[in-house]
């Protein structure tokens, strides 16, 4: 059976508490969880920079996390593009500003919809995957087996996945953005017969570097969050298959919430550095 996670890596689970103290304990647990995640992530960043680099493992995870998520992100992006196009049409038509549809759609997608949806989808697919996989490895003693073979399991399992997430996220976001723009074009073309060249020209008419660069690069942080949450909860999985399922679900929930919350901070930060936010 699985051992307890290494004590220096994880907060010790709270002792059973009387119901009256449950709320207090809940708050404390939340703090313990956030603290644990922060330490875990911080260590991951340090370890990621320190050789040896498990390039093979990173490539393997990039395949799972990046390449195999591409169809999901591309189709979702396409659908979002179609829907956004219909919505912007509905509202812009009223002002006689149909010509603005591509630009409005592109700005919405590039600035916020693309990065956030891509991150949430990845949190679902990738976060759950990491949580479940590492959870299963914990429960079936594979992590112990790694440690016993003198391999740094944290580095080998967690850091490689976190790095792969950080690499994959901006690329997946780009895939999402591109397919959303294509989706928008298909919808627009079907309704107004607009040409691809004109569509592209208009789509990029309001987008500046300050829209594209920060919003795409911020997804590196999203990837970090997804990887850290998934691996942390996976490593912390309790014995039994139940623990594996729990690690997966909790990874998705926690990663999604943290992505959304961190997005607020990141957007504020971007506006701080690029006050015009558009131009």
């Amino acid at each position: 059976m699985a051992d307890r996670p290494m004590p220096e890596l994880l907060p010790t689970p709270a002792a059973p508490v009387p119901p009256a103290d449950r709320i207090g304990a809940g708050v404390l647990n939340t703090f313990a969880l956030i603290g644990g995640l922060a330490l875990w992530g911080g260590r991951a960043l340090v370890e990621a920079l320190r050789p040896p680099y498990d390039v093979d493992e990173i490539v393997r995870h990039l395949y799972d996390i990046g390449w195999r998520s591409t169809p999901l992100l591309a189709t979702s992006g396409f659908a979002i593009g179609v829907v956004l196009s219909m919505h912007t049409r509905a509202s812009l038509e009223r002002f006689g500003a149909e010509a603005m549809i591509p630009a409005g759609l592109a700005v919405a997608v590039v600035r916020e919809t693309g990065p956030l949806t891509a991150a949430l989808l990845a949190a679902g697919r990738v976060g759950a995957g990491i949580g479940a996989e590492l959870g299963a490895m914990r429960v079936t003693e594979q992590i112990d087996a790694l440690e016993a073979s003198a391999v740094d399991a944290f580095k080998y399992l967690a850091v490689t996945r976190i790095v792969a997430c950080m690499i994959a996220m901006p690329i997946l976001t780009t895939v999402m953005n591109v397919s959303a723009v294509i989706g928008g074009f298909v919808a627009e073309h079907a309704i107004s017969g607009m040409s691809w060249d004109l569509y592209l020209e208009r789509a990029f008419s309001l987008i500046g570097f300050s829209d594209l660069l920060p919003s795409t690069l911020k997804t590196i942080a999203f990837g970090f969050i997804i990887g850290v949450t998934g691996s942390y909860l996976g490593f912390a999985a309790q014995r039994g298959t139940e623990g594996v399922g729990q690690a997966a679900t909790r990874s998705v929930v926690l990663a999604s919430v943290l992505v959304i919350i961190s997005n607020v901070v990141l957007v504020r930060l971007i506006f701080f550095f690029y006050p015009q936010g558009g131009a």
Partner: peptide, 24 residues
């Protein structure tokens, strides 16, 4: 797959940057 993913992603992103730069 990974090569296509990374290189393709970078190319798409670079193309987008170029479009923006060109417009600007």
């Amino acid at each position: 797959g990974v090569g296509l993913f990374v290189v393709g992603g970078l190319v798409l992103f670079a193309a987008a940057l170029f479009m923006v730069g060109d417009r600007r």
